[in-house]
Write a protein that binds this DNA or RNA. Structure first.
Lengths: 114, 114
DNA sequence: GTACTGTGCAACCGTTGGGTTGCAGATCAT
DNA sequence: ATGATCTGCAACCCAACGGTTGCACAGTAC
């Protein structure tokens, strides 16, 4: 639907529930939709939708075993998002550097270490 | 309104137009809504809305001078997002490390260098 | 002064998104 | 075989989002 992996990743991470899900998956390794639904104030189907979003964004991957489907993280999606932020940050830092050279004010470096 | 800076930042970055705007601001230093509207296939008001979103997410900051309002970047918002990704990535890498110690398979490291 | 440009606010419209309910198909335990 | 889970699909609701148009106001230029 989105055709844009970066947008999909950021969009997936935009929802607080989804971020919590990601956190839970990260700390447990792999979780099922029903498990999460028990610890969240929302329906299993809602969780399933969120997981689908995460999957389509390349952030999570399902693995069916028997009747249950366990979801695991896929950090490469996160890496893409981090890379974009890093790029923009770098460009911005470059500008700041140029300005600093002109201004030569105090305020030492600290270039938003992304 | 969002009460959640992280969600606001990710949400702001989720829109491709908004990401382009951020890129443009980053490379030019500061831009006005009208300037951007000329180079985008959308209305100035649409651009203004996007800028408002970026501002509320802590990613951009307006500075009015005379009749024009120039927007500049505020990398700290980006830093917050990057930090979250880095955290989850770290947790995940820790898990991977533990598993690797067990499996001891080939496939050398490469821990999602966020 | 008048004209032009840049901005902001408000209303409106179509689409998407998070959430729910309801139901049907697999799989496991007894 | 029967019942209990775990899952997936579809329909539906309401709120939020991206975008538009229209108008009113503040600076700048002439």
């Amino acid at each position: 639907m989105n055709e844009e992996p970066l947008g999909a990743a950021f969009n997936a991470l935009a929802d607080p529930t989804r971020r919590q899900l990601v956190g839970m998956i990260a700390e447990r390794g792999s979780v099922t939709a029903s498990e999460m639904a028990r610890e969240f104030p929302i329906t299993r189907q809602a969780v399933a939708k969120h997981l689908a979003v995460l999957q389509e964004a390349g952030l999570a991957e399902p693995a069916r075993s028997g009747r249950e489907t366990r979801y695991a993280l896929r950090p490469q999606g996160l890496a893409g998002a981090a890379a974009w932020i890093s790029d923009v940050g770098a460009e911005w830092d470059a500008r700041l550097g140029r300005l600093e050279r002109h201004a030569a004010a105090g305020e030492r470096g600290r270039g938003s270490g992304v």
